[in-house]
Computed example of a mutant assay.
Amino acid sequence: MAAVSTDVYVTVLRFYADQMAFLDALDLDAYAGTFTEDGVTHHVHRDHKLEGRAALLAHAREALPRYREVSVRHWNDNYRMDLADDGSLTVTYGSLVTLTDKEGQVRIESTYAVTDLLVRVEGRLRVRSRTILRDRAAAG
């Protein structure tokens, strides 16, 4: 794995800015479109794996009622990017999810450690795999 150029770093940040904007706007089709057709999303903390874009979209639609009465924001930061010889990128970052209710009260849903494998499909970045681990209290 090699460090990425500034241009690649900015391109990846823009990819995530667009992807999270789709998710926060509840534009599930556009969000799912940022994954490969065979993309895998693994919620380690729930031992729940979604295989394929269609499964991701179905799961997101099932969860949608939970988010209709709140504003959701994903605050991602501390990106680390490594470029593989085949051009794929492994990206790790932290994610803070907030929910704002009708009265403007903000609640932190959780924080997560995320690892993505990004690939190019027809010249555009797509998530081939995403591993999400919900933060837990440190042992001891």
Rank of each mutant, 00 (worst) to 15 (best):
L89C: 03
T111Q: 05
L83D: 05
A32R: 00
V10W: 13
D7A: 15
A30H: 05
A30Y: 02
T100I: 10
V12M: 08
A138G: 07
H42A: 12
T115P: 01
L96Y: 03
G140E: 01
D29I: 06
I108V: 15
V114K: 02
R126Y: 11
Y31R: 03
A63I: 03
V114H: 09
V40A: 05
E103D: 13
L50I: 08
A63Q: 15
V106K: 06
R73V: 01
G33R: 05
A137V: 07
L28H: 12
D116H: 07
T90W: 07
E103Q: 15
Q105D: 07
A25N: 14
L117W: 01
R14K: 10
V121Y: 04
V70W: 02
D82M: 07
D86Q: 04
T111K: 00
E51V: 15
P65E: 07
T6E: 14
V40Y: 04
E122T: 11
T131A: 07
L118H: 05
H74V: 03
A32F: 07
G52H: 08
A2T: 04
V8F: 10
T115A: 05
P65C: 09
L64K: 12
L23N: 04
M20Q: 15
V4W: 12
R124C: 15
R107C: 03
Y112K: 02
S88V: 02
V8M: 14
G33E: 02
R68V: 10
T90H: 07
A58W: 04
V10P: 06
E69Y: 02
K102Y: 01
Y9C: 02
L50Y: 06
I132N: 08
D7L: 13
A2I: 12
H42W: 09
V106L: 10
V119K: 02
L28I: 15
D24K: 11
K102M: 02
Q105I: 13
H42G: 05
S88Q: 10
V91A: 10
L99H: 09
A139Q: 11
V97H: 03
E62C: 09
V12N: 10
A25P: 01
V114I: 13
D29R: 09
A84V: 00
Y9E: 14
R134P: 05
A139S: 11
H43T: 05
E109L: 08
R46H: 08
L56M: 14
L64N: 03
L89F: 13
F22H: 14
E122Y: 10
W75F: 14
Y9P: 00
A137E: 11
G52V: 07
T36N: 05
E62L: 05
S129A: 11
K49Q: 09
Y9W: 14
A138I: 10
E69M: 09
Y112D: 01
D86K: 07
H74P: 03
D101A: 06
R61Y: 10
K102E: 04
F15Q: 04
G104D: 04
Q105W: 00
Y93P: 10
D82I: 02
T6S: 12
S110I: 05
F35M: 03
A84Q: 04
